[in-house]
Structures are given as C-alpha cells and as structure tokens.
Amino acid sequence: MESAYENKGERDLRLLQLRFIGKILAGFTHESKNYIAIVKESAGLIGDMIQLGKNSGDDQESYLEIIHSIEEQIEKATNLFRYLNRFSHRMDTELCTFNVNETLEELIALITRFANQKKISLEKNFQQDIPSITNNPSLLQLLVFHFLEEQLTGLAKDSSLMLETSFSNGSVLVKIIARGNYQEAESEKGLTNNESHVYIIDQLRGTIAKENDLISISLPVSLS
C-alpha cells in the first residue's frame, strides 16, 4: 500500500510535470512564432523590393543578405525543433541510460528565452568526460528547471546563472551557481516547494545541497 507521502508526492509531481511541460511549450511556441515572423518579414521585403520598384542590379547583394537571414532563421528554428523533440522523448521510458550534459543542454536551449527576457545570462560549464547515468532524465530536467526558475524569479537583471557538471566519488554532480543581486522577493505562483524537491530527488536517489547561491545535485551513476 502506498504511503501518504508517496500519494501526495505523486500527485504534486504530476502537477509539476504538467506545469513544466506547459512552460516549455509556451517558450517554444513563442520562439517559433518569432522565427516565422522574421522569415515572413524577410520574404515580404524581397517581394516589396521587386514590387515597389526597388529592384536594380545593385539589389542582388541585398537579396542575398535577406535570403541568408531567412536561412539562418530556418536553421535556428530547426535546432529548436530538434531540442523539443528530444525533450519530448525523454518521457518515453522512466529509466534509461543518458548523458547528463546533453539532457541539460536541451533544457538550457528550451528555457534561454525566459532568461533573456529577464536579462540574465544562462551559462554552462560541463565536464565533457562524465559517465552516462541510468536514471530518469525527465525528472532530472524537471528538478533543474525548478531550481533555475526560482533563481530567474529572484535574481535581478544583469545577473548570471551557471550550470556546471562534474564527476566525483562515483556520482555525477550538477551545480547551479547564481551570480548577481537578488531583487525584492516576487510572489512565486508555482507549486514547487522543498517537499517537492525532496520527493523528486528521492525518486532520482540522489541528494541536494543548498548553500547561499549554490545548489548541488548529486546523482548516482546507476540506481542498482
């Protein structure tokens, strides 16, 4: 029989996951619409230059520049689609062997817009040779997302958030390091609280340590 802790933990976890997915989709659709808007304006500009009489031989360079800009936007959009696709497939199986760096890189790509909005830089410093771990990648993304979201809410503009990974004593460490000043506490409308963090890290069989501007998540290489 499930304990009250597990029941509540699972219920809260589902809500957190839905909210997380909603946020990621909101950022993704906003970003996608921006790319489409730029492509549309660029294509419209070529049409205007032809239709409104500004088409001389000298304009060839301008056309090429605009076409290059369209290609760049399509490439950016394709990368974003790729990240969202990988993110979606993280939920295919509860447990799998994955690379923590790739999982976090994907998360960063999908939430950079939120950081940019607040003029907070989101940086990464990953140890390249960390071993793959067997765990739940989607839950790890959820946990890191909530810590980042908390920091993004609290930090003042022009601050920075560094995401670091390393391997030490048989565990993979994920560190979130905040640099900058905190603004007056904004009311957090989210559902995340310490209880949720504890429940998630229990599922991941890891540990969390918080110390001033540093949050460390330690994960075992294998759950066995």
Binding site: N34, A37, I38, E41, S42, G44, L45, D48, I66, S69
Partner: peptide, 10 residues
C-alpha cells in the same frame, strides 16, 4: 533585430 530591420525597411 532581424524582425525590426526587415519590417522597418518594408
């Protein structure tokens, strides 16, 4: 930036 540049030109 690209959006503002193109729309401004249009």
């Amino acid at each position: 930036v690209e959006f503002t540049v193109s729309l401004a030109e249009r």
